[in-house]
Amino acid sequence: MEFFTGGRGSLVAIDHGGYWQLAYTIPPGTYEEIRRAGLESLRTRIAALAPRIGGPEWERSTRGTGFIT
């Protein structure tokens, strides 16, 4: 398990061999801003924290993307 932090969020990454499971935490009150910015913006934030996880091989699907409170 890896932990990355910086900017306005933190990322926990679990390598399952063939795929990564990610948990991206955001500051309270910023969910609407992130949702409005869109999924590509979220990918950009994650790539800035962990470039090898958010690189070009990133699956371009929203499958498995969710919000947990």
Rank of each mutant, 00 (worst) to 15 (best):
E2L: 12
E2V: 06
F3D: 10
F3L: 13
F4Q: 03
F4C: 08
F4T: 05
T5A: 15
T5S: 15
T5W: 09
G6W: 11
G7Y: 13
R8N: 13
S10D: 13
L11V: 06
V12Y: 05
A13I: 10
I14G: 02
D15Q: 07
G17A: 10
G17F: 01
G18L: 09
G18M: 09
G18F: 07
Y19S: 07
Y19M: 08
L22G: 00
A23T: 10
T25Q: 09
T25N: 08
T25S: 12
I26M: 10
P27C: 04
G29Q: 01
T30A: 08
E32C: 03
E32F: 11
E33R: 15
E33W: 07
I34W: 08
I34M: 11
I34Q: 09
R35V: 10
R35G: 04
R35C: 07
R35D: 13
A37V: 11
G38C: 06
L39S: 09
S41A: 15
L42C: 03
L42W: 02
R45A: 07
R45K: 14
I46P: 00
I46G: 01
A48W: 05
L49M: 04
A50W: 01
A50N: 04
P51I: 06
R52H: 13
I53G: 01
G54H: 02
G55K: 04
P56R: 11
E57A: 11
W58H: 09
E59Y: 03
R60Q: 10
R60K: 12
S61V: 00
T62V: 11
R63G: 14
R63D: 14
R63S: 14
G66C: 09
G66T: 10
G66S: 11
F67Y: 15
I68E: 15
T69S: 14
